[in-house]
Design a protein around this nucleic acid. Structure first.
Length: 156
DNA sequence: GCCAACGTTGGC
DNA sequence: GCCAACGTTGGC
């Protein structure tokens, strides 16, 4: 069992939006490292921190879960989409995604500043300077610790 | 609005 | 394959 963190701008798609939707295909990721995590490494049921970026303040807003296996991101084939990729084809998809299921919204956001100032989380990727990656693995201990900061009982 | 970090592009 | 220019992310 692995743990993950996904970033989303709440103005675009927030934890509340995920709660309403129940499940959401994670379209539009156009970074190879992030794609590789979804494509080949994520497994159904893996718990995921849902992080609000470009927010005031930024921080972890809740929990999601990998809904199932990866499949080609349909927006890469759609000329009308901002995520259209002319170099991708149905035969040779370039971008893969998974769906995420809603698990929980934290009663209170755990701000990035809190994560950064906590020695337990010193080497958590999202705490490090200049990590722009929108999907990162999270150590089990870090995942559980962040849930603890939110007063949330982590899923098994 | 600024700017550090860093990924991508394209000329050579 | 190198690397300068450029674009994007995202905190502050």
């Amino acid at each position: 069992m692995r743990y993950w963190l996904i970033k989303s701008e709440p103005d675009v798609f927030s934890i509340t939006d995920l709660e309403k939707a129940g499940r959401e295909p994670w379209t539009g990721v156009r970074n190879y490292q992030a794609r590789n995590f979804m494509w080949r490494e994520m497994r159904e049921g893996e718990p995921t921190l849902f992080y609000h970026s470009n927010a005031k303040p930024p921080g972890v807003a809740g929990i999601a879960r990998v809904a199932g296996e990866s499949y080609p991101d349909p927006t890469q084939f759609d000329p009308a989409s901002e995520y259209f990729d002319p170099k991708a084809s149905e035969d040779k998809p370039r971008w893969w995604l998974v769906d995420f299921d809603f698990v929980a919204a934290f009663d209170q956001l755990v701000p990035l500043a809190t994560l950064k100032s906590d020695p337990h989380l010193a080497d958590m990727m999202v705490c490090r300077k200049g990590t722009r990656l929108s999907i990162t693995p999270v150590e089990a201990a870090h995942f559980k610790y962040v849930c603890g900061l939110a007063g949330f009982q982590p899923p098994d």
